[in-house]
Design a protein around this nucleic acid. Structure first.
Lengths: 338, 338
DNA sequence: ATATACTTTGAAAACGCTTTCAGAAAGCGT
DNA sequence: ACGCTTTCTGAAAGCGTTTTCAAAGTATAT
């Protein structure tokens, strides 16, 4: 009967190998050269006792958690698995752990759930952390990377995002080039950077073709299927005249499709529809959705890379913009129906 | 100039409040009654110093990590965000942290990445952890919940999954009832429980209608769009005769749609198609997909609930089967085309 | 008033590592 | 052979909590 309730500790290994715990630590971490023969004994002991160092003890002693945190506001959205995959793979490759946190607005935040005590650095997606908390972390010089959100004024926090404005310009320009004039734009959630840039692109493309901006064509889509559906329904009900819809993102485009079909308006004959993101299903809805491809998995990977730079004391790039790419399918009407 | 480099510790709080660190710990955790006035002083000190206990120190002293691990093999799949959301919300509500790990087969597992040293319990999705590791954890009585996978023989590990077989029966029965006889089945990844149960349902439904099982109608779909596409293409190329396809899951159904369209076979007129899961886009592809709704977010929540029971020393239910529900749309051909 | 039983508290010992410090051993030049 | 470096190595001091233990203070019972 084993008296030791829990698994081996560094002392067990040390005893078993006939060395001090300091030496064990050294061969484990390779911090200091150790006599070959002793190192061998230690390794054997580690294997035999099936020793795994407790991260908690390590963290306490070294003041490094070896963990980074991912914070986001809402898991919704078809792009999420790609983002997570990019982050996860890149991060674990570098030997870090991933702590995941979603900041529902409805959840009462008792004790600070994630921060310096928890992690060595943070990956923050859109507006999931409030300005004050970001400011606080910035003050104490805590490594942060923002994804799809620019930092509050005066703070030099690295950002990684996609060419939202360019993408929107491509989309809207394409629509206009093919004869559309009254283009609805469905905004994303309030304060969402992606949406703001996309709107800017929308306006620029309009301006470039001397089409005046019309406030009545802009409504709320929230990057959400249901909201987009409701908004478009209301526009139709109000008799607003339009011949195209830039849905804000692909999820919202789904809602647009639904509203249009209910109103018996043909896509793209009566109304052209375009989305943003190029999520998995975009090419398979009917008609296939013209959209802009956002390299979201790459955003995740890049964010991790930059964060790792910060953790290694190197400088991070203050802004990385991933290129977007127009994906023309059938919903914009410029390809023949199949 | 502050000499203290890092934030306050329990000693600072104790000094500030004029009590011992033991007392501070007690009011923080409510483990032992503390004189009201002193407790008040401690709380004030905590607030003033902005004290947050270091989890590492807590873990080391209490031998509880207060975090649970989620292990899965592949983030792919439209259902993933729902699963994660269910887990995340339920877990954080209970005050636990979430450590996320994906076990790519290609990643060389150096040191055990996740286990007793890391977490208080594990949520394991499908075959992401190999039998030996599960066995080892089971031996040492480590809390585990399996999702969508039954435990190795002889181990009484709680499982939570959905009514895969019933769902498949409903689907195939529906197809047969509406006149389909030669129904292709696309298997999921090798050894995937969900797929095995769905196949069993497929066979039972066939048998119930005295239709002999035909091996040539079964192929590999891998729950993956591309694989399904290739498999179906090959079936068509080989001249296999069929009037319906049970794609295994919705992602595979997408691939089936593509192959069918390329071959100019009409859905559902020439071939009926059904999926499984009812992911977000299922109702919006063309034609809308008939499928079975799997309450995946609820699976996540339930898994957490069961794990928490285990952690509280209570008994967990050894099998929870979430009900599935047939969702009839247009791809099965029993509704009129819109 | 005295003995007994709770309550509340602080000192100090873990928890399992990393890291500093200084000493021992080994290498080297002359 | 004798100092002087250069390598290795172990003892011990943390890291920041929780928890045990016993003491001190209070209340209750007789």
């Amino acid at each position: 009967m084993n008296s030791k309730p829990i698994s081996a500790t560094i002392s067990d290994v040390a005893a078993h190998a006939g060395v001090s715990i300091a030496t064990v630590s050294r061969v484990l971490n390779g911090t200091t050269p150790v006599q070959a023969e002793k190192a061998e004994r230690v390794k054997r002991a580690v294997a035999e006792l099936n020793f795994v160092p407790r991260p908690a003890a390590r963290t306490l002693a070294s003041r490094k958690t070896n963990t980074i945190g991912l914070v986001f506001s809402e898991i919704r959205g078809a792009f999420f698995p790609h983002l997570l995959k990019g982050i996860e793979s890149q991060l674990h490759e570098a030997g870090y752990e991933l702590l995941v946190y979603s900041t529902h607005s409805d959840r009462p935040i008792k004790r600070k759930p994630i921060g310096e005590h928890n992690t060595d650095g943070l990956l923050v997606f859109t507006t999931s952390l409030d300005k004050e908390e970001i400011a606080r972390l910035y003050q104490i010089n805590f490594p942060i990377i923002l994804m799809h959100e620019t930092p509050p004024a005066g703070m030099d926090i690295p950002v990684i995002t996609v060419e939202n404005k360019d993408g929107a310009v491509m989309l809207v320009d394409h629509l206009i080039t093919h004869g559309r004039r009254r283009i609805v734009f469905l905004r994303g959630p309030d304060g969402h950077e992606d949406s703001q840039w996309r709107e800017r692109g929308y306006r620029e493309a309009l301006a470039a073709h001397d089409i005046p901006f019309d406030e009545t064509l802009v409504s709320s889509g929230e990057f959400d299927q249901e909201t987009a559906y409701q908004s478009l329904k209301k526009l139709i009900h109000n008799g607003v005249d339009f011949d195209a819809v830039f849905a804000g993102d692909d999820d919202a485009a789904i809602g647009v499709y639904r509203a249009l079909k209910e109103a018996n308006r043909l896509i793209p004959d009566d109304v052209a529809v375009v989305g943003f993101d190029d999520v998995d299903f975009a090419g398979y809805i009917s008609p296939p959705l013209t959209t802009v491809r956002a390299p979201i998995e790459e955003v995740g990977r890049e964010a991790v890379r930059q964060l790792l730079s910060l953790l290694n004391g190197e400088q991070a790039q203050s802004l990385v913009l991933k290129r977007t790419e127009l994906v023309i399918r059938e919903s914009c009407g410029c390809l023949k129906h199949s």
